[in-house]
């Protein structure tokens, strides 16, 4: 593989992740349904996770473990830190989504609707 292909893959990953973040942001800002807002938040999370993974990307990389046959492969190893971070971020995103869905259940019981412009007892 030559260098240009690596750059194309890298830019593709970054562009996709930023596109996902923007799609999610659009959903959060414009959608009226509470569920769709939460889906938008999850899409933003997905985009950020992809961006995070993209940083550690190496063409033809190996797992960051010193095993037989890979003693001198440290230049080929992918960066393990972004992968550890992304695991943590996924768990946090899961927790936030769970809390948000619980709140939506509560809101639905209280207002009998999922439309955000009908829930305005407080000043938004």
């Amino acid at each position: 593989m030559n260098i240009e292909n690596i750059e194309i893959i890298r830019i593709g990953v970054y562009a996709t992740s930023i596109l996902l973040i923007l799609i999610g942001l659009y959903a959060v800002l414009t959608k009226k349904s509470l569920i769709k807002i939460i889906i938008g938040l999850s899409i933003i999370d997905g985009g950020i996770h992809l961006l995070l993974i993209g940083i550690g990307y190496i063409k033809n990389g190996t797992a960051p473990i010193f095993s037989p046959g890979f003693e001198n492969a440290s230049a080929q190893m992918v960066d393990p830190v972004p992968q550890a971070l992304v695991l943590t971020a996924i768990v946090i995103g899961f927790g936030v989504t769970a809390v948000a869905l619980a709140l939506i259940i509560r809101l639905y019981r209280h207002h009998n609707t999922l439309k955000i412009d009908e829930i305005k007892n407080l000043k938004w």
């Binding site: 809390v99 709140l103 509560r106 209280h110 407080l122």
Partner: peptide, 10 residues
């Protein structure tokens, strides 16, 4: 209306 406040915060 606490769920509303919490959702906004979230």
């Amino acid at each position: 209306n606490s769920a509303e406040a919490a959702f906004k915060y979230l």
